[in-house]
Design a protein around this nucleic acid. Structure first.
Lengths: 167, 167
DNA sequence: ATTGAAAAATCTTCCCC
DNA sequence: GGGGAAGATTTTTCAAT
């Protein structure tokens, strides 16, 4: 764990929205000079707080028109069964997210597929054959209303810096 | 829409995993010289295929220990009701994803919160007061088995390039 | 359309405050 | 912990294939 001050949080907020920012531009935005700004970024990177930078693509343009949530119950909930299931599911590239859940189903996964045929193939050829699986129920997303990767940061609303003086 | 050849797909695959790659290194990995590589990236960026680059943070280190899926049914499904609900939900920073769904519930959202108290506050103060909302049911993620942002790309498995000759 | 090289701009590292 | 100068990449542009 790491101590984060207001400036750190502002850096994180910026990088969560645009990781391609140059250090100079980032420093400008958080009202710092480039060197300490870079030092902070580096520290947060090394602490594992900033895990990595990735490019987000347009699913529609790649022909991935369907987001499907699939609830899966296993026959038994032994550690071995859970691990076996997880390994098989994580090996599939269309599985964007997978959560072990409370409630009626054991797992909830989101898959991104081009069409219903691909979903059918995924369920019949990948999911059903897994011997630990008992029950599968899928729900389609009609619309992706929101999808973001930026985690909520408890940012002090308006920092108490004196803009005129600092400027 | 855009015509994508094998090299484009390989570029996308790399950038989906690491957007901080320099153009030189990226070009090396896809067996291209820097200039056409940069031109391709630029074209895909301008086409909107590459939407943006973002930093992924460690939720645990930020104290966000809970992922909760919340199913929400509305009293009515008029366009106005849907839009009103969506606007209110998207305004909240803890809502990472929101989907309009088929099946019993109307919406499925995933929220990232520090603890149960924060979840309770979110539900009681943000969700319940929305007048369009009829029913709320939440399920906790006990474990985030997989979370990735890289979309599945139909990559030709082993490209038919002649490594020795090209080298 | 790709390659390779050269020029310009930028970032990163070091040292001082 | 923050600010300023030098070295080193990187991106861009251009001409040639």
């Amino acid at each position: 764990m790491m101590e984060l001050d207001t400036i750190d949080l502002r850096i994180l907020r910026e990088l969560q929205e645009d990781a391609s920012l140059s250090n100079v531009e980032l420093a400008r935005r958080v009202h710092l000079s480039p060197s300490p700004c870079l030092a902070r970024v580096k520290a947060m990177r090394e602490a594992g707080l900033i895990r990595r930078s990735v490019a987000l693509l347009d699913a529609k343009q790649l022909g991935l028109h369907l987001n499907v949530f699939i609830s899966i119950s296993l026959k038994q909930q032994s550690r071995a069964a859970l691990e076996a299931f997880e390994a098989k599911v994580c090996a599939r590239d269309e599985v964007m997210e997978c959560y072990l859940m409370t409630g009626d189903a054991d797992y909830l996964i989101r898959v991104a597929v081009p069409d219903i045929a691909a979903l059918e193939r995924f369920i019949l050829e990948q999911l059903s054959p897994i011997k630990e699986v008992e029950k599968i129920r899928s729900s389609f997303a009609l619309k992706q209303v929101r999808y973001k990767t930026a985690l909520p940061l408890a940012l002090p609303p308006v920092s108490a810096r004196r803009r005129r003086a600092t400027q």
